[in-house]
């Protein structure tokens, strides 16, 4: 709640100045080995950028009844600057996911990266905490629970993207290898690949479609198909 409060305050403060507001909505349809069928999610992210500071809040809404992805909250805040004409971005992020009726997951991370004309690279680290929900604890009050939390302290986050055309081009193709998106951070040993097609019909509106392929057992296990998802979204930039 503290993080939400700080971010909303930052957004309100920025909105009184010459800031840029970005609304990002997308829908995602996919199927994985663990989803129990096709799932459909909708996401809404609101970002504000003022000079070199930016903050973002987002929610993931499950639209199918599979009880796998109930809801996720995302928040981030960061700064961008230049080192010898190289644009650098650093942001801290937080996600809160209700995994099921009984388990929730919190993730804290910090990630930094550079964006050149054709290559975007981000590296960071996150900590994951699995918690038993209040519902789980209350329902099972009589049982002898030994621990309510699991902590994974260190997990590498990475994203390597190649842009076929420079970022300012009206349309583009972006190929990426990464282990996280807004609402899901995988362990470092589970990279996935994505190809995103972007088109900007107007200067302040961006449309995109993306296909994401996930495999299990990368590295020292035989690679097996895990899942595919398709995203399509819109970004709308509003200058105050």
């Amino acid at each position: 709640m503290l993080i939400v409060g700080v971010l909303i305050s930052l957004m309100l403060w920025c909105s009184n100045s010459s800031a840029q507001f970005i609304q990002h909505n997308y829908i995602e349809v996919g199927k994985t080995n663990a989803s129990g069928g096709i799932y459909l999610d909708a996401a809404s992210l609101s970002a504000i950028r003022y000079k070199h500071i930016h903050a973002e809040l987002g929610f993931l809404f499950p639209l199918t009844e599979f009880d796998k992805f109930l809801s996720t909250f995302y928040a981030s805040a960061g700064v961008d600057f230049k080192i010898k004409n190289l644009p650098v971005e650093i942001h801290a992020l937080f996600t809160d996911k209700l995994v099921s009726e009984f388990i929730s997951e919190l993730q804290f991370g910090i990630i930094a990266g550079v964006k050149t004309k054709h290559v975007h690279v981000f590296l960071g680290n996150n900590t994951r905490l699995f918690n038993l929900t209040r519902n789980a604890i209350e329902q099972s009050r009589n049982d002898n629970y030994r621990k309510l939390q699991i902590v994974e302290k260190l997990n590498l986050m990475y994203s390597l993207s190649y842009l076929v055309f420079p970022q300012e081009n009206k349309w583009n193709i972006i190929a990426s290898v990464l282990n996280y998106d807004y609402f899901l951070i995988h362990q470092e040993t589970n990279p996935f690949v994505s190809v995103r097609f972007t088109y900007n019909p107007r200067e302040n509106i961006g449309l995109y479609s993306e296909i994401v392929y996930k495999s299990a057992g990368f590295n020292n296990i035989q690679v097996n198909y895990f899942g595919v998802n398709l995203l399509t979204g819109i970004l709308w930039e509003i200058d105050f």
Binding site: A34, K68, S100, F102, Q187, A216, N220
Partner: peptide, 15 residues
């Protein structure tokens, strides 16, 4: 560096 189950499968199994 040992591969682990993907998060979606991990959630399902833990649950």
């Amino acid at each position: 560096t040992s591969a682990t189950p993907l998060s979606e499968e991990l959630y399902e199994l833990m649950n």
